[in-house]
Amino acid sequence: MLLTGLGAAFFYLFAFVAIASAVMVISARNPVHSVLYLILTFFNAAALFILTGAEFLGMILLVVYIGAVAVLFLFVVMMLDVDFASMKRGALDYAPIGAMVGIVLASELLIVLGAQFIGVGQPGSVASPTPDPLTRTNTAALGDIIYTDYIFFFQIAGMVLLVAMIGAIVLTLRPTRPGVKRQNMGKQVARKVEDSIDVVDVETGKGL
């Protein structure tokens, strides 16, 4: 599908801002600025998703990546006290490895893109045809596929995330030290007047 007119104009706008801010992510001096540029990149990627009609993916990118993941990024970078200038000095040594990873990713993208031209009419590409956007919304179409054809992959992804979550909790779990006072809500609520106050008749001059 070729974009024309206003669609093309917006595509070039979002694509240009996305690439420019992606460059700024690695060239900005201040790490917090880097993360803010990363957020701008995410934001434009979401806009590109919406432009191609994948509105659900675009919104999820906004909610999950920008609304939660990038917040934690920003959080950590703000708290870190690392001298990023000295870390960046040797950054150019990694250029060959970076270029290699980049080439691998780019060629994989090409293969994925090429599949729709090479594999036209192949069983895999006609098994779940794209429904007409006028009759089935993007969100519903995505749900149709995820919960039928790809249910096992979906559940495996969920299990991987669950394991990662439990792992993270276990990593931060420390054995409770003795003598640490903690609040127990149940105990506090269950406390009654009879348990805590003793009314005693004290004779004058005697004391207790």
Binding site: E55, M59, V63, I66, G67, V71, L74, F75, M78, T137
Partner: peptide
């Protein structure tokens, strides 16, 4: 079509102003 998600996304982005 994704109106409610849009509002949810916007309200989750509001944290950036504060941070």
């Amino acid at each position: 079509n994704v109106g409610i998600l849009f509002v949810f996304a916007v309200s989750s982005l509001e944290v950036y102003g504060v941070i």
